[in-house]
Design a protein around this nucleic acid. Sequence first.
RNA 1: GCCCAUGUGGCGGAAUUGGUAGACGCAGCAGACUCAAAAUCUGCCAUUCGCAAGGGUGUGAAGGUUCGAUUCCUUUCGUGGGCACCA
Length: 912
Amino acid sequence: MEYNFIEIEKKWQNNWKASKAYQVSNDSSKPPFYVLDMFPYPSGAGLHVGHPLGYIASDIYSRYKRLKGFNVLHPMGFDSFGLPAEQYAIETGQHPAATTQKNIATFKDQLDKIGFCYDWSREIRTSEPDYYRWTQWIFLQLFKSWFNPQSNKAESIQTLIQQFETSGGDDFSAEDWKSFSKNKQQDILMQHRLAFSAFGEVNWCEALGTVLANDEVVNGVSERGGHPVIKKKMRQWYLRITDYADRLLEGLNTVDFSDSMKEMQRNWIGKSEGCEMDFEVPNQTGNNDAFKIKVYTTRPDTIFGVDFLVLAPEHDLVNQITTEAQRGSINEYLTYVKSRSDRERMAEVKQITGCFTGAFAINPFNGKQIPIWIAEYVLAGYGTGAIMAVPCGDQRDFLFAQHFEIPITNIIGNHFDGTQANPTKDATLQASDFLNGLLMKNAIKVAIEKIESLGIGKRKVNFKMRDAGFSRQRYWGEPFPIRWEDGIAIASEETQLPLELPHVEKYGPGPEGEGPLANIESWKNEKFETSTMPGYAGSSWYFLRYMDPTNSSTFCDKKVSDYWGQVNVYIGGTEHAVGHLLYSRMWTKVLFDLGYIGFDEPFKRLVNQGMIQGSSRFVYRIKGTNEFVSFGLKDNYETDELHVDVNFVDGIELNTAAFSNWKPDYANARFILEEGKYLCGVEVEKMSKSKFNTVNPDDLVLKYGADTFRMYEMFLGPIEQSKPWDTKGIEGVHRFLRKLWRLFNDDVKGKVWNEENATDAELKILHRTIKKIESDTENFSYNTAVSAFMVCVNELSDLKCHKKTILENLLILLMPYAPHISEELWHQLGHATSILDAAYPKFEASYLVESSKSYPISINGKLRTNIEISLAAEQSEVEQIVLSNEVVQKWLEGNAPKKIIFVKGKMVNVVV
RNA sequence: GCCCAUGUGGCGGAAUUGGUAGACGCAGCAGACUCAAAAUCUGCCAUUCGCAAGGGUGUGAAGGUUCGAUUCCUUUCGUGGGCACCA
């Protein structure tokens, strides 16, 4: 009987489906365990081999936990709002709802073939009204809440109103508050709401009449059409995530994420401590009102080394302080900056740009006049948008000063050599008045105290993180349940939700860059907000909905979320390190503060999967011809590099016949070969349809079966590591499964397994495997687990062990990895119930006890021989054995050893 | 530019806390079985010197700590991911 994986996999997939084997109840005596995948965006390209990497890992873990006696929640759904579907709609006229529907069907079909244990009865789609009704509801909670710094948590906006009514606010009294107009009151409240509206900059493309995503902007022009793109201020919604900055930092101490992941989040939040300080700018028009420029610095200790101030080009005061003489150049510079993205502005430090405003500020400590410049390396969004530049202590300031020939003041003596800045805090200050003689790091505190006592500034904690933009001028997203009346945002009634996305025929932008919803008359008449929510809205809370997916009275019953609790293990790519993970952490904290859930961190443990990259192949067409030249000869010609479908290439050798048949253009292609072959160029890059480097899992499942595919993906390498896909090697895993099969069945003789008693040697193999698989599975070290299965089956085959007592335990260990073949063989062994709920084998250490070990013997750290020594032997005994050894004596050359290092159970090193 | 990760045979990778570098698999080579092929099985497989025994070198590069470094430290180069409107 042969291993017919096609039949076996179909049989058990149908069987599990019919018996609802993967349906999970919210009511169980077993302890709960929640294993979650980052749900996919259902792109039109379908699933490629990169997607299942994390899904297989989580599937293995879920199945393993189920064997260990847990009630495992393992759901899947779709993040189905998003830009690509809309772009596709603009190009083809097909409604995003229709294409999304179709793409999801394809995804589900592909996922099912791999044999995942998802409870599909809990599937969610963020673009369904039943789902986004609750996204809108949570948005309203954010809108109706503020962050109370006293209680350090979100509270109803009503408590703030009460506070204003009884004791007023920062700069107004209770009486003032009551006298304010309704609009003014609402404006003030808006400055505290967790979801708020304000003006912010967007990428605006005049030619296309629309706002563009950063992705759609390439080198400062639109990807479509290559039109210029500038910054434009528009009214936008934001989430006040900065109020949660400290709690987002603290929360990292309570979760099990990798250190690098925590580091990335900490850096993103970017907490820094320093101070704000005012620099006066005498008003040149003779008015006595001087301007004040507020700078933020983390290095107030360097105050006597300030040689110039730099403002962000967008800074409010730029226009007012610029002198007439400089106005022309400043305007020119502003135009240049408008065309540059933040990224470009920070990245190209080699190219130093800036412009002098003509104005001078006064250093409050020594009265020195310092020139004020504007430069693109200062960003308006961070700090106060103005910095004090200290060239001797900051390399960027140093290069700027050098480039524009601004004289440099040295405040650290010979710690500064005039050729580069010294950014350390370990130098002793000189020429710094009251700070003279202090170490810089100690001077920071002294300087801040002085600044505060002089009343020219104050201590200030700053965050790099900015409030999160929450508006998109798009169609395919959640509508805001907000109407605008006389400039006041009015929340929809919660009972009126969902506010359904209206059907449109055209997806073009509305007037003035508004979203497509602005083109719908009824929508405008109702005064509804015309932008929609961003992609991360739906994904910020979906893990809660899986717990209680069909509840129509609340987003998730508190009793249910209390039962499941936090996601125990969350698996997904590092590309979400900062965006999605921070947003969902914030939403969870808000829902916790408001009492809707009982935990304030969503994910207890995070496992990052690496990205599977594509390995692209290139051919080289000689310019203006239909002739293709092999890789090694391409430098002799002028060529165009073209992606070629990786499926036409064996290694790097092109199948020229298949290539010619690929596209009509290539039908008459001619080839210049090297050594009779056409060789392709190779590059590792993102797996993408447009690069023709995608590999479809369906083909592999068809050819080798789902079990082989699952194990091969895990065998590729550590789960968290990125690696290019290579199908070579899958044969080895397939051979392993066939070898396993032959322990039970012979192709000719049929059944070969028996009920004999196991020998010690066989039990040793089994228990070593149990131990290894259990710890590897817990640690997500699946590549070594697969290897351990191979070793086990190799050894059992060598011993000709066909014993049921050994094999049935092996099957349970293997089930999470290769469920179909395990279930089939399990039943062949005579079991009537499913292997899905078998009991995990228990490891017995007694089978592995050894009495002696072959110790490696090194001379001066170099391995020279091995000696079998009892594990009970102590140092003196071991020394005796080692020194009498022939090989050791040869290396000693008659000398006595200096030292003998003996690590029990490990090794011996003789130092000569 | 900044942040994070990463670099080991022809290839994917393994190596517990600093303790035998190259497990397992792919590819390759030689052989067995076969009319033949597939499948399967056996052996070899970092590099270099050597008939062999045995020795030298070797974990991106250069230094350092240590009896001992793929592992720890410093410097440096390459590659991948992220950088706020892709998801």
